[in-house]
Amino acid sequence: MIGVGNVVELRGVTKKFPVRSAPFRKAEPFTAVSDATFSLPRGKTVAVVGESGSGKSTTARMVLKLEDPTRGQVVFDGVDLATLDRRELFEFRRRVQPVFQNPYGSLDARYTVGRSIAEPLQLHRIGTRATQDARVNELLDQVALPTALASRLPHELSGGQRQRVAIARALALSPELVVLDEAVSALDVIVQAQILELLAELQAELGLSYLFISHDLAVVRMISHEVHVMQHGRIVESGTPDTIFDQPQQEYTRALLAAIPGSEIAR
């Protein structure tokens, strides 16, 4: 199975949110994602780019099944997520893990680093206290953090370290798919590069698939195998990073490219 086929497929996925309206006025639901279709081959990285409000994070949340699509299907490993029962959903949650944008909000300020990383293990009742501690050290090692950090609280860590902790936590259950929602966007450029490198190493080592959500085409180019450009909830352009960069078809894509710092000089 590993390395074969698509981990995730989106088929005509649409998400509408009800809008709170003034009384006596009819509420038009807001369409966050409209008819999105793409697939994520196993072991690859597929990026979704777009400006804020383009629907890319909603897409990520639907793949994580934190939101349900209004129409269409999100298919994981050949199974429509809408059909999962409780037990299957719990199993699904072991196989797909998120890493979020905000290195300050992604960890509970009251939990030590070790406890945060071990939480998924506790949830799934994997191992004893001792084996969980060992696994935490192994994970910290994997994301190139000293194991001494396990007893620290998040506020003692830098943004980059926190994001490494979030990644370690995501890897705790040995998932197949990691959804990276703006996972490097809040970091400065040097730390960004380090984290991207780490992600690439982990992918090669563990055969992970990444759904990479970002507004930053420069970052996307460094990591992804395939790019989908999203605007107002629609996918307006798809292709390999190189074709997107070298022959952008859409005005919107060109605008995103122009927004990359230093792009004017490079041209």
Binding site: L64, F90, Q97, S106, S116, E119, R169
Partner: peptide, 26 residues
């Protein structure tokens, strides 16, 4: 809406778990 709650839910935490382990202490 904080990401540590979303992360816990994504790891399979029930509403009860989130409330007891994250929300109540906070």
């Amino acid at each position: 809406e904080q990401e540590f709650v979303q992360a816990a839910r994504s790891a399979g935490a029930s509403g009860f778990w989130v409330i007891r382990k994250h929300l109540l202490p906070n």
